[in-house]
Amino acid sequence: METANIVEKVGFNLLKQAVIYLPEDVKHALQKAYAEETSEAGKTQLKAILDNVELAERHQAPICQDTGTIIFYVKAGAGVKNLDKIEETLTKATRRATVEVPLRPNSVNPFTQKNSGDNTGRLIPYINWEIVSGDSIELTVMPKGGGSENVCISGMLVPGEGIKGLKKFVVDAVIRAGAKPCPPNILGIGIGGGADISIKLAKKALLRPLNEPNPDPEIAELEKEIFEAVNMTGIGPMGLGGKTTALGVHIDYAYRHPASYPAAVAFQCWAARRATARINSAGKVEYLTHRMW
């Protein structure tokens, strides 16, 4: 198949879908939060959020002016040809989306502080690779906002404290973050592997739909326990008080070194933007998160 042409088109469409339309599971979670929120201040914020989501759809405008750092996740079938061209192709798609959607230019050289103006630069858009069997490609984009990224944390916990240490780490992180990550948030928690692996797992866990608990029932139980705990903080929507501080908690893990307990918390703002599509070997495209496309 003509990998490059199709991937560029799909990459562009995914970027456009992601910044304009929230995934259905996130919308439902926000609607449920609005129905259940008891704090008046919190309810006002959730109403404004829902109104804004609807307006963005109606006017085909980005939900938030911060259209994020562009991150792709690529699940490539081992049988797919020309995989070496995908990075270049997704960079092209990002440039086009910056002009046509439009996206806010958010890619800055950390030494000169100069903005590239087109959302690209060294290693940006960033691509996470996974090789799977088969001959189709699954592309996911996560435009990640700066406010929530600024409070992401990674830490080395004490192995002897086990899961208790992890729970404290997460609750303290949420309280320290307060209003900054534009709550209600989705929390991705990564455990084990090493410092780099835990934060990577934490961020990737943000992609899991809100209505899908962890397939391991014990971990699903821990997700629920932490979810309930952080919603007891009272931080509430936009930090103005209320019972909706998190929309979901997702955990992923790797085995750890006996002497280390790496852990990380990735924060996602309420504008939890993501979009996924699958391209099969015949070049047929199936949009998985935004089916109305």
Binding site: Q45, A48, I49, D51, N52, L55, A56, H59, A61, P62, I63, C64, Q65, D66, G145, G147, A179, C182, P237, M238, L240, C269, W270, A271
Partner: peptide
Amino acid sequence: GAFTGGAAVLAAK
């Protein structure tokens, strides 16, 4: 006055 973070279209309109 706190305006909802991220509600960029609501503000623009």
